[in-house]
Each structure stands twice: as structure tokens, then as C-alpha cells.
Design a protein around this nucleic acid. Structure first.
Lengths: 176, 176
DNA sequence: TTAATGCATTCATGTAGATTAACAAATGAG
DNA sequence: CTCATTTGTTAATCTACATGAATGCATTAA
């Protein structure tokens, strides 16, 4: 079977778009039912809570998809900001892209596998958030995304882990 | 469009199964690539962490699906236990059920919507776990699952929220 | 060069929630 | 019915992590 990327490159309907580092793709309050497949670069989604604090929901580098599925499924405005941590190339899909009649079986299968993979990651994240201390979550992050620490600053890792940059710094110091 | 339940009832391939309250459907360490659609009753999935503590990952009542998607997608043994909190009727699917050639378009669309819905819930849960205190998570749980508090004991709600039963008890007392 | 800005580290103190324990009420089994 | 288990509550103490402030070090701009 071909990779999703190979399939997408042959797809006439797929819209490719380039974003610059720092560019904002989606703002809180919008309803934008798009799903982004990252073919190159690095995206980030995050919320800003009632106290003004940022919390990174996820990163998406090459081969991952980025979308506010809660917003798309329940059809309400998004709480998520999405922006680019690097110059990024994405393929954009609309709502219900997966079930359009012209979608090929191969592509559909790949799409569904991406959804499963994503859910697997979300599931693991919830379980770790509930049952493991910050040090274990950090170790797990390093194992799962070995390439990311070289591409993003520490404070973003902390934000992803759900702790402060100070706490992460302390953890790293103890672990040395 | 018909509901998934109506579709499933006409499906010759769908296997229906009955479980008794308390029965264990899946144990940690197994690899069982099944997805359960709950047509009646209530299922629970949970992990037991390295210190022996239980953490409830999710509940699935009527109309929801239950599966260890991490295990299915990455093809490793499950960490999740699944058991019945009530007498429960489920429809069982195997790995790759969604992409079988004999699956009808209507059913496929419904299946994908269930996946999206589930991911929306997971996403919200992660964001709340990171950014909101226990009291807010409890309130959100009550809004999202108004029927569940009548069907499960408090300590299971606490376990789902990621806090101890004592903490939940205190929160509820303050809120009165 | 000198500010100015962003990033990481360390420390002192504060706090949400964990832990442990004790107890009462409800439920269930023999 | 009785006894045992499950469930929910309250309180005292403990701990992981937050908060706020100070410091050093790059990088960039003027």
C-alpha cells in the first residue's frame, strides 16, 4: 500500500498550502472545519485558559494531522489556536472529507489509520496525565517524539506536559 | 439517515453478545482487537498503575463505542481492563471492521462520526485535565454525562476525574 | 558598543489535592 | 434477622507542583 503522502500527491482535489514560521492558521472563536495533513514542517495547537495561561494540546510534524475535531464534530466555534513553529506545508481537507464519494479505498483506509493512531496517542496521554508524575510523562514524551526536543524550546515541552517551565527545569536537573 | 443501531440490527455480520454486571470483557496483557458498540447497559475501561491504583479511562453507555484503540493501532497488548457496570448488550467488531468491502456507506459514515465524537471528548478531557481545577472538571462531567451519576458510585466519578474519592467529597461539600 | 528581548535556571513560599485514618450509613449475602 | 462489605464523609498531615522573583546567557537591534 502507498503512503498517504504519495496518495495525496496524486489527488487532484487536495489543496496544498504553504505557511511561514509564526503564522497563525486558526484563531479561537472561529468555526473552521478543516483538517490539515502536514507534509513538511511543524504545527502547534493550544488553548488559552480563563487565567490567560497557554496550554499546548498537540504538535503535528511530518505525517501527522492537525484539526480541532471537537469543534468539527459538535459544530461549535473552536477553542484552539493553531500556528506554525516552522515553515510548513500542509494539505487541507474540509469537513466530511473522508466520506466523499471520490475518495479512494486506499486513501480512506490510510485516513482511518491516522485517526486511530491519533486516538491512541490521546488515550495514552490521558492515562499518563492521570496516573504518572511529571518526570515519567517527560520521559515518555522523549521516547515518543525523539525528534521534537531539537525543534522546540523547553517551555513548550513543559506546556505540553501540563507543568511550568520551572518544574521541567527542576526535573531535568534532578535527572542529571 | 438511520441511526447506527438501526443499521447494525439489520447487519447479518454483526455479532451481538450479552454480558452480566461485573463480568470482565478484557484483561490487561491480552491483545484483543475488538471494538464494542454498546446497545444497552454500561461499560467501563480502566488501568491499574505501577502503584496498584485504578484510573478509569472512560465509560461507554448506550450509543457509544468502547475499544483500546492504542492497542489496536500499535498492535501491542492492551493496558486496559474492560468490565460491565450493568448487564450489557454489545455489538462486536474486529480490527479493520470499518474498511471491509461489505460495509455500507451509511454505516461507514456513522462509524466515522462516532470516532470523531470520541476524539472530541478525548480532546476536551485532556484540555480540562491540564487547565482546569477538579471542581470545574466535575461540573463539566455532570453537564456532559447527566445520566451517569445516577448509575455509578461517586468514587468512580473521582477516578474518572483523576482525583481521590475524598477530594471529590470535599469539593461537593463546598459546592453546597 | 549597549540595550533589549527571549530562554533557561534556581530558590522561597503557597496551595490543590494525596494520603492516612476513623466513622456512619447503606447495601447485600447467608 | 445478623454480619460483612461497599460507600460516602470529615479531618490531620504531607507532597508535588505552582507562583513569583532574581539571575545568567544568548541572540538581535540600534
Amino acid at each position: 500500500m502507498e503512503t498517504l503522502e504519495e496518495i495525496l500527491k496524486q489527488d487532484k482535489n487536495a489543496k496544498t498550502k504553504l505557511f511561514k514560521k509564526g503564522e497563525v492558521i486558526q484563531n479561537k472563536g472561529q468555526y473552521s472545519p478543516h483538517t490539515y495533513f502536514v507534509s513538511k514542517g511543524l504545527l502547534r495547537s493550544y488553548i488559552i485558559d480563563s487565567k490567560g495561561k497557554q496550554h499546548i494540546f498537540m504538535f503535528a510534524c511530518e505525517g501527522w494531522i492537525m484539526a480541532d475535531l471537537e469543534s468539527i464534530e459538535f459544530e461549535h466555534p473552536t477553542e484552539l489556536f493553531i500556528d506554525c513553529l516552522e515553515d510548513t506545508e500542509v494539505v487541507i481537507f474540509d469537513r466530511n472529507w473522508m466520506t466523499k464519494p471520490d475518495v479512494e479505498a486506499d486513501q480512506l483506509l490510510q485516513n482511518i489509520r491516522l485517526l486511530y493512531r491519533r486516538m491512541g496517542v490521546l488515550q495514552k496521554r490521558i492515562l499518563m496525565q492521570m496516573s504518572s508524575p511529571a518526570i515519567d510523562r517527560y520521559t515518555h514524551f522523549l521516547e515518543t517524539y525523539p525528534q521534537l526536543p531539537n525543534r522546540i524550546p523547553q517551555h513548550m515541552i513543559a506546556s505540553y506536559l501540563g507543568i511550568t517551565p520551572q518544574a521541567l527545569s527542576t526535573i531535568r536537573a534532578q535527572n542529571r
